[in-house]
Simulated scan of single mutants.
Amino acid sequence: MAVELLAFSKTVERETVSGDRHLKVIGGPIACDILLPTAIVEFRKTSPGIRMLADVMPPHAAIEELVQRRANIVLFNMSTLEALPHAGRLQFQEIITDDFIMLHRPGHPVAARDTRFETLLAYPGAFPGYLDYLGGQLPAGMREALSQAGAPHYTLYSPTSCMNLSMASDTLTVMPLSLAVANLESGRLGGKRIPGLPKYRVGAAYKKDAALEPDISAFLASLTTAARKLQRGSVRRLKALG
């Protein structure tokens, strides 16, 4: 508690002396890429004077920053957040639920074939983010198939890098639908639904007393507004994929 309070006092002192108000958000690469651009646009409407720093860290490191008050909000998969240490000292809020889909370059052989998992594993695969934290959510048969195939071949923490790799090669990428919409609509990538994949549930974690802080409350509201907009677009695209 002493370390936490000292860190908090430094933040308060800096903001009091400078007059600047900062909001620090830490998350996984997928969660940040899904939500932050749209949420920041919404947040600026109500809080234009707040400066923001967004960083990407592994979940355990991000939670430690939050507990020590060196961050205000953490964004990750909900299942990951709930399994991390210090859960009893934090408040969780589910923000958005997204469907994972498989992405491939136009003309890829899988475009005209079935989407049985065994068929897809014949090609190199890329996954964005921290796969180790999602493994426990996969059906048992899928986990075993991935392990036997040595998949994914590439773990790239940038979702954009994964999609660019799929555009340039036969590498298949699994991506939350909301991140893939622009590339699907432009024709730069094709997509297929894969039965059995769990949904990606993005949640926010923050200190229990932090919800009383106006800037944090405003940003949480902006995240919720952003999620509604993104989900409307994802629903339309999901219907188009069949």
Rank of each mutant, 00 (worst) to 15 (best):
S9M: 10
K10P: 02
K10Y: 09
T11Y: 03
T16Q: 06
T16V: 08
V17I: 09
V17D: 09
V17H: 08
S18A: 05
R21Q: 04
H22I: 05
V25D: 02
I26E: 00
G27P: 11
I30S: 06
I30P: 00
I34A: 12
P37I: 13
V41T: 10
V41Y: 09
F43L: 08
K45N: 00
S47R: 13
S47C: 12
I50H: 09
M52D: 05
M52S: 10
A61N: 12
E64M: 14
E65R: 15
L66V: 04
V67G: 07
R69H: 02
R69E: 03
F76N: 01
N77Q: 15
L81C: 03
H86M: 09
G88V: 05
I95V: 15
T97V: 14
D98Y: 03
I101G: 10
M102K: 13
L103T: 04
H104Y: 09
H108G: 03
V110T: 13
A111V: 03
T119Q: 11
L120E: 02
L121M: 15
A126E: 11
Y130T: 00
L131M: 12
L134T: 12
Q137H: 04
L138M: 02
P139K: 01
A145N: 01
S147D: 07
A149H: 10
Y154L: 04
T155R: 12
S161M: 08
N164L: 15
M167G: 01
S169V: 04
S169Y: 01
L172T: 03
L177Y: 05
L177H: 08
S178C: 00
S178E: 01
A180K: 06
L189I: 02
G191W: 15
K192C: 00
P195K: 15
P198S: 12
K199W: 05
G203P: 04
K208M: 13
A211G: 07
E213M: 03
P214A: 08
S217V: 00
S217W: 07
R228C: 02
R228S: 09
R232S: 10
R236V: 07
